[in-house]
Design a protein around this nucleic acid. Sequence first.
RNA 1: GGCGGCAUGGCCAAGUGGUAAGGCAGGAGUCUGCAAAACUCUCACCCCCAGUUCGAAUCUGGGUGCCGCCUCCA
Length: 531
Amino acid sequence: MAEQNKGLRLFNTLTGRLESFTPLDANGERVNMYVCGPTVYDDAHLGHARCYITWDVLFRFLQFSGYKVRYVRNVTDVDDKILNRAKERGELPAELAERNYQSFTEDMAALNVLPPTEEPRATRYIRHMLSGIEVLIAKGAAYITPDGSAYFRVAAKADYGKLKYATQNVEVLKRHLDDLKAGARVEVDEGKESPLDFALWKAVPLSDLNGWESPWPAKGDSKGWGRPGWHMECSAMNHALFGEQIDIHAGGADLIFPHHENEIAQSEAWTGKQPFSKFWLHNGFVNVSGEKMSKSLGNFSTIKKLLTRYDANTIRYFLLTNHYRMPVDFNEEALQAAENWTKRIYRLVKGVLGALKIRQADLIASVAPNARQLEGQEDPAGVFGLFQEAMLDDLNTPRALGVLNAALGNLQLSFNECPDAVETRAHFKAVATIMTQLGFDLAVLFDSSASSVPAEDVRAMYRQITEKNPEQEPGVLLEELVALRKQAKASKDWPQADAIRKHFTDIGLQILDNKDGTTTVEKDGLEIVRV
RNA sequence: GGCGGCAUGGCCAAGUGGUAAGGCAGGAGUCUGCAAAACUCUCACCCCCAGUUCGAAUCUGGGUGCCGCCUCCA
């Protein structure tokens, strides 16, 4: 039998404590994990990046730890925000949702976020939602109002509120309910038995094109018509795909209440089984210069926009330097620090890749896919052990990055001393494995081509320096220019050599003279040409 | 108003009882035609007060400040 507890500890919002993670699976092998996915009404922003990168890291680490993970991340493609946005744009809601979903998929891929095992869409589970609501009605946990809407009867769930307050103390819960009732911001809908009750199904007029048939017609109508309440889809998709219980349910901290609390109430009332999810995990928010990032403040950055300025590894490093449950502050200085780090390690890793003649395929092969493979293997400076230790401790990525930096330091030293030593390879494997497990994308280091520099810029520079009209491809021209500078250097014509350097820097290219006599042309830390 | 969280050097951030990891930035030096890289050295008594303890950034109590949730939000 497989080891039940692999030493992972996670902070469970359900209990408010750090707990040892063990899956429900009797063999302790399979893990079912559900993450609340995006509502596809707009481009994804940095907040989404933080959320999905966090759970991407968990997904990777669970697999690294030897679990077989089924990771479901839903797509909310029915929602008032989608309808409103579609209306504004004069577009069909389904088209808008599809377009944004594609955009989201691109963003996730660009951020090197692994695709989940499945990505169910809410609109494909309407029927399942309706049948779930019928079960709730039959059990007395839900009721229909005269207009044909369905509400969850919170009074029917004695332990409602357990997620947020993480306590079994009934009195505290009661007080919590009183507080909620007294709260100024609980609106009282027509027909609701209690202000705490929430919609499972919202009736809409038959004339509304964006509706589905329900079994509950409003007074005078021939058939029922409406849309799902906003918590129901997650309960339904979990029920349809996983059954009654799952191991991990995760999402942004803002979802704790009411979304997740209501999901728990629905799902547990539906199946009679609890806990609906053994672990509830929540990531912290992204602030912008100390303020909450929000549309109303206009201070949010879309992933697409961010990626024009910073590469994916920089964004990931920036996010992972903060523990996932803490708020992270987005500001230029922090991003700049992350970018400097990224550039530094690019230089090192590129140098190693070149010296050891490691190709992309070799790189993948040199990354250990799971911790088990590392057992009994050489662990240079104990970094694998330290890395795992950090990650097992509630995904302590800041600490894990500290370990990575130590591994990078070891690699640098070994590389300086003897690039081709066995030791260097071992250190490199440690670095490559840790980086890959944290979701850094090393493939970008192989993506060197002159095409990333506008051909016109290169031709213009060539014209300035040689006063000749160029015809060749940028790559060839760059090589010629490097050769020209090399000649100038050889004849100690320093002004000319420096002038050429300046021309390169003017169009955003860096010239680096290497120890071995070669010269590298880089753009943003990435090699373009090496002569 | 209710509840939760956080407070460590210029910036970010580990560290939960024994005298402060790491990254970025900065300073000094080595190397170098220039530039870059690399290497060496250097840079904090942990918001305040009181308490527990031989000993606290780390535990307890009080205070101050900041943030979040309670409303769509990742």
